[in-house]
């Protein structure tokens, strides 16, 4: 065996750092999209490593749909101040004032207004030419073909028919004014890699990932957490306390919890290995139709 073997996780780390630095050398005004989730946490750690001993040379942008879990927001503020990161928060003011919520508007319309539109507003306002995102190719079918540098036109739209070929480690960052690139440094990581990296590096994550007694109601086969008083209960629904945790985090009325006793990473992974449902099955918006994610991506959502 060759003495110069690099473990797969170290290879992934090196590749991600390469991508982050490459984008920094090609773009003038990058931003990192920060969703507070575990993938974002990993991406932030990689950015810290890429520019060490310097500071992360770009800001983090959080799109607040105004329906996030409270624990997420608490975590976000504590994490960013501890890690000395520049955080920008944006929400869709018009939508908020109009009272757009997932109950009256349905998950599709709500997501479009409070997430997609909010994101596009923030990106246009900041005139960012590159936005780092924590999407992974193993998450969902339409993502398996996503580029590492994903080109977006002036309207932030993604055209699956017209993607730039991507070869070797040579990324094409050429754009005209107003256009942008979404850059995905952890494209090649799997869910398991992310968990192992969090464990190895001791990366802080939102406590919602760990099992705890939480107030939930059962809705369409999923456990939905009653995170605050805005949650509208349907007839016959009474919140009950259950040991649950979240595999992905989003807006609390749209994110299903799974019943679990896993309160450590090791237990989470053990559970995951036995789990026979993929990660995104707890996302309500993925079930809007067979090609729903692809449709949302075309419109500018991640």
């Amino acid at each position: 065996m060759n003495q110069y073997n690099l473990s797969q996780l170290k290879q992934l780390e090196a590749e991600s750092i390469h991508i982050l630095r490459d984008a920094m050398s090609q773009f003038d005004n990058p931003i990192m999209l920060y969703s507070i989730g575990k993938d974002s946490s990993v991406m932030v750690r990689l950015a810290q490593k890429a520019f060490y001993p310097g500071k992360v040379p770009f800001k983090l942008l959080h799109i607040n749909s105004t329906w996030k879990f409270r624990e997420m927001l608490e975590f976000r503020d504590a994490f960013c101040s501890e890690q000395n990161l520049d955080l920008l928060v944006h929400y869709n003011k018009e939508g908020f004032e109009a009272g757009v919520n997932p109950f009256d508007y349905g998950s599709r319309k709500y997501t479009d207004i409070m997430k997609t539109q909010a994101l596009l507003q923030a990106l246009s306002d900041g005139k960012y030419d590159c936005a780092f995102g924590g999407a992974r190719r193993d998450e969902e079918k339409s993502r398996a073909k996503e580029r590492i540098y994903s080109f977006r036109d002036k309207h932030h739209q993604w055209d699956p028919k017209n993607q730039r070929p991507e070869l070797w480690g040579l990324y094409n960052g050429k754009i005209n004014p107003g256009e942008s690139v979404r850059c995905f440094p952890i494209s090649n990581w799997t869910e398991l890699d992310v968990w192992q990296y969090i464990r190895l590096e001791g990366i802080p994550i939102v406590p919602l990932y760990y099992a705890k007694e939480r107030p939930v109601v059962e809705r369409d086969g999923q456990w939905i957490m009653v995170d605050d008083e805005r949650m509208r209960l349907k007839e016959g629904e009474t919140p009950q306390s259950r040991m649950v945790r979240f595999r992905t985090l989003g807006c609390y009325p749209l994110t299903g919890a799974v019943e679990s006793n896993a309160d450590t990473i090791e237990k989470i992974v053990a559970e995951m290995m036995e789990a026979r449902d993929s990660e995104r099955s707890t996302r309500v918006i993925d079930h809007d139709g067979d090609s729903s994610m692809e449709q949302k991506k075309r419109e500018g959502y991640f």
Partner: peptide, 21 residues
Amino acid sequence: LLDGLKAEREQGITIDVAYRY
């Protein structure tokens, strides 16, 4: 399971590189 994009599914052929893990 593998043919990700809508158009491809309709044509029954994979037309873009997809990465699997």
